[in-house]
Design a protein around this nucleic acid. Structure first.
Length: 875
DNA sequence: TACATGACGTA
DNA sequence: CGTACGTCATGTAC
């Protein structure tokens, strides 16, 4: 029985238990989507959480080995030498596990030159001396020597780490027939294969125990070796030194100097946000509530995330509301709830007051001036609310903060998509939710005013952790972009249903014809849209050579099919490719057509938090991936038309903005000169790389340097370059060398920028937008190299996104005085609907604003086109 | 019904 | 073994 008044100390050998979990759990079930293995971490934490729950320790430490080397290997080089190399997939998990434990408030200990078990022995001894209950959890049998009346060993069973066997002195006696303290004597005689410590041949546990009981101690056995008869006696006499060595090595040190005292091991409250962060990175979901539950003290206490409490809202009429905002000091939290795209209710809050009202014409009239004023407003996910207000006839200015945007800027990789997520992550509370299953819910959801109040609280927390540079990106770039995007979405773009449906009909017929021919070519019908069925046809029935592997078989993607076509001609391949092309186009067209509203326009939604680099994304429908490359696709773009009442479409795009940013960031003299010379970029680069006159750069040369230049921005390898250009790798390598011989500063910049990111943990755009890259330090090569390429690209793509956003909202603001309006943003291109008579002024605004959005060491070149539809307007 | 996968469109 | 996205159809798991 444990004495509950006494502190309970739990000490764990993190390394050995995680290692067991690593082998016990199938790695394929425990990997994140970008390839980080997590089976050891998961298994360990799962066991650890169960331990915390069952044993309720007051003090905890988890010890880790620092390396293979220790004082033991120095004394006996062969110690543990037969152990196979620790798999790299496991090594990488240890720092992450330590991070988890740290977030959970658990002390993590390591000590160079010692093994984790020595730390365990030291702590267990100290705890025992204090009269505490001590639990030692280790997968190393040597820790049996620590067992006493006050020290219990928890040892994983063969099945894995989830079952722990308890060893107290009585169990040890029953199992081994000696006192726990004598166990190392047995081990010394018998030897330990896993530690590469040979013992006395032919001596097993039975014999060892017999001798030890007979002589009373190991020393006595060794001294009396001469009296032992038989072969084993002879063996013992020949291996006395081995036994002595074994005993020296398996004695755990109980007086290792540690930087902590027992009191420091007291379980600290877990850091909810840190735990959520690291668990999100590891993609642990089910484990999260278990950790929170185990971290809370005894069973029936409050849940880990308490339901958040906000002041009761005061209902005001329009007049009182206007008076309230007139008196409000400082920033006001604003929430507009929506019903069918229209404002439904309005809730406002300051730090200590919450007011609200149903939306109506009276409220719109009374508060319109305040909404349109610079009075600072704090919101969360302002864009849909701004759109609803606009539909209700109210325009909003003075947006001082958007919590969702801020949360994204701080952690662009996190899936925080609602205020509720932020409240949970930052405040550790749960927003009250209405019980959706009941008509009259028992539990009330947060009211609009309360949501505003939470927005203020979350805002405070976000500002706290927001570096100055990120705050500037929010204020100077993201916030002004919000209203711009709202206006663009409301405007939509005119799309011709007639053009689309005609084309769709043609493509449908074409796809059907091709399908029939394809069936004829292989003698049966298959679903041409099913990679699975295609694999059967291609690789089993037709016996074509295998392509690149995928998770579920072999790829049937276009590039591979083209390769196949070269190697083994088969009419089916070409038909399949053409079928794919036709159905893909038809899909896009039909999707687009379905999105046309009653006024003939399509309204996309821009997701401002939709990328990790700072770009926008576009959904429902995605208007940022409308086909452009082929002749056929021009017909789709031609369906995007200038709307009624407008004169023409204007398209404006940045030419080679990413390469220009590279030139600016790297300061490469050659590249800077290329852009300042006015010469075609790829021609200029080609002439330098191949040492010919710009006029003599052949199309092949141009293609090569163009691929190289673009590849640079993505972290392209010689392998990838070779594949893309269909040249061999030696030639690709040479191309890279020749390129860098002329534009070496580019390579230097890219390398330095990744190294800097590795140091500080994040990349930064020209304007200070950050993107964290924890994996740059990962020992997992795949993970690390992926992170390196992404880190190389992030400042470039991100800076381009920053520049475009700045140009975009400035153009939008300038156009307020005109009828013309921005409709679409496609990363480096804008589509603008120009009102009659406004072309000249709009073109001037666009050229100026895009050209001056950033001061780089190279000019920002803007191409402008004009036409009645998007295809015509392209240049 | 929800989720993963492969394929493919854009910058 | 090239970055960043979203959508579709299919197939599987629930």
């Amino acid at each position: 029985m444990t004495d509950s008044a006494k502190p309970t100390l739990l000490v764990v050998d993190g390394h050995s238990l995680a290692y067991r979990a690593f082998f016990a759990l199938p790695v394929e079930n425990f990997s994140t989507k970008d390839g980080q293995h997590t089976n050891g971490i998961y298994g360990f934490l799962s066991m650890f959480v169960n331990l915390l729950k069952a044993e309720k320790p007051t003090h905890v430490a988890v010890a880790f080995d620092t390396s293979r080397e220790s004082f033991r290997t120095r004394e006996y080089a062969e110690y543990k030498a037969t152990r196979s190399e620790t798999p790299a997939e496991f090594k990488g998990q240890i720092p992450l596990l330590q991070e988890c434990l740290d977030a959970m408030g658990v002390t993590v200990l390591t000590k160079p030159d010692y093994e984790a078990d020595d730390i365990l022995a030291t702590l267990a001894t100290r705890g025992e001396n204090e009269g505490w209950n001590v639990l030692v959890c280790s997968g190393d049998r040597d820790t049996i020597q620590l067992v006493t009346d006050g020290v219990t060993l928890l040892y994983p069973s063969v099945q894995g780490v989830s079952q722990l066997k308890r060893y107290d002195p009585q169990t040890v006696r029953e199992r081994y027939g000696v006192e726990p303290a004598m166990y190392p004597d047995i081990a010394a005689l018998v030897g330990e294969t896993s530690d590469n410590l040979p013992g006395v041949p032919k001596v097993g546990e039975k014999t060892a125990v017999k001798w030890l009981t007979q002589f009373g101690s190991l020393d006595a056995v060794l001294e009396g070796a001469d009296t032992i008869k038989g072969v084993v006696g002879g063996n013992l006499r020949e291996h006395l030194d081995d036994v002595r060595r074994n005993r020296r090595l398996n004695r755990l040190l109980r007086d290792v100097e540690l930087p902590v005292g027992l009191d420091d091991l007291k379980i600290k409250p877990l850091d909810g946000q840190a735990v959520r962060d690291i668990f999100a990175r590891l993609e642990f979901r089910a484990l999260l509530p278990r950790v929170f539950e185990a971290a809370g003290a005894p069973a029936e206490e409050e849940p880990a995330a308490p339901i958040a409490q906000a002041p009761a809202p005061v209902q005001l009429d329009a007049e009182a509301l206007a008076a309230w905002v007139a008196n409000a000091q400082g920033e006001v939290g604003v929430t507009v709830t929506l019903l069918g795209g229209q404002p439904d209710r309005l809730g406002l809050a300051t730090a200590d007051e919450v007011v609200e009202a149903a939306w109506g014409d009276d409220v719109a009239t009374a508060l319109g001036p305040w909404f349109a004023s610079d009075a600072p407003k704090v919101m969360s996910d302002a864009k849909p609310q701004i759109k609803a207000l606009a539909r209700g006839g109210v325009s909003l200015a003075g947006l001082a903060f958007d919590a969702l945007l801020a949360g994204w800027l701080l952690r662009p990789s996190f899936p925080d998509k609602t205020l509720g997520h932020l409240v949970e992550r930052l405040l550790g509370e749960k927003l009250p939710e209405a019980d959706p299953s009941q008509l009259v819910p028992e539990t009330e959801g947060a009211t609009p005013g309360q949501l505003s109040w939470f927005t203020l609280r979350v805002t405070e927390a976000l500002r706290e952790e927001m570096p100055e540079s990120v705050a500037r990106v929010l204020t100077d770039i993201e916030l002004p972009t919000v209203a711009t995007l709202a206006a663009m979405e409301l405007a939509g773009v005119a799309v011709s249903h007639a053009k689309l449906s005609e084309f769709s009909g043609e493509l449908g017929a074409r796809a059907e014809t091709i399908a029939q021919e394809a069936y004829a070519a292989i003698g049966r019908e298959v679903n041409l849209g099913s990679p699975k069925q295609l694999q059967e046809v291609l690789f089993e029935e037709l016996q074509l050579p295998k392509t690149r592997k995928t998770k579920t078989g072999y790829t049937t993607d276009a590039a591979s099919l083209a390769d196949l076509q070269e190697k083994a001609h088969h009419p089916f391949l070409d038909l399949l490719l053409r079928h794919r092309e036709a159905t893909k186009l038809k899909q896009i067209i039909d999707g687009l057509d379905a999105a046309i509203d009653s006024t003939g326009r399509v309204h996309t939604t821009y997701v401002q938090t939709g990328s990790q680099t700072g770009r926008l994304s576009s959904t429902d429908p995605n208007l940022q991936n409308i086909p452009v490359r082929t002749e056929e696709s021009k017909r789709i773009r031609a369906a995007f038309e200038v709307g009624a009442g407008y004169e023409t479409l204007l398209t404006a795009d940045y030419s080679q903005i990413e390469m220009r940013i590279m030139a600016h960031l790297s300061g490469d003299p050659g590249l800077v000169e290329a852009f300042n010379s006015g010469e075609d970029l790829h021609r200029f680069v080609g002439s330098r790389v191949f040492g010919v006159d710009p006029a003599d750069v052949t199309p092949e040369m141009r293609t090569k340097v163009k691929a190289m230049s673009y590849g640079l921005v993505y972290g392209l390898s010689a392998f990838g370059l070779a594949k893309q250009l269909r040249i061999d790798q030696t030639e690709a390598k040479k191309l890279m060398l020749d390129y860098f011989a002329r534009f070496g500063a580019v390579r230097d910049y890219l390398r330095a920028s990744v190294e800097a990111a590795r140091e500080v943990g994040y990349t930064e755009t020209i304007f200070g937008r950050r993107r964290p890259f924890p994996d740059l330090k990962s020992p997992n090569r795949q993970l690390r190299e992926n992170a390196e390429r992404a880190a190389l690209n992030a400042p470039i793509q991100g800076s381009a996104a920053d520049i475009m956003k700045i140009a975009l909202f400035r153009i939008h603001e300038d156009l307020r005085a005109h009828e013309s309006r921005v409709l679409l943003q496609i990363h480096d291109e804008l589509v603008i609907e120009v009102a009659p008579g406004e072309w000249d002024v709009v073109e001037a605004i666009v050229r100026d604003r895009m050209g001056s959005a950033a001061e780089l060491s190279v000019p920002l070149d803007v191409q402008v086109g004009r036409g009645a539809d998007w295809n015509e307007a392209a240049h």
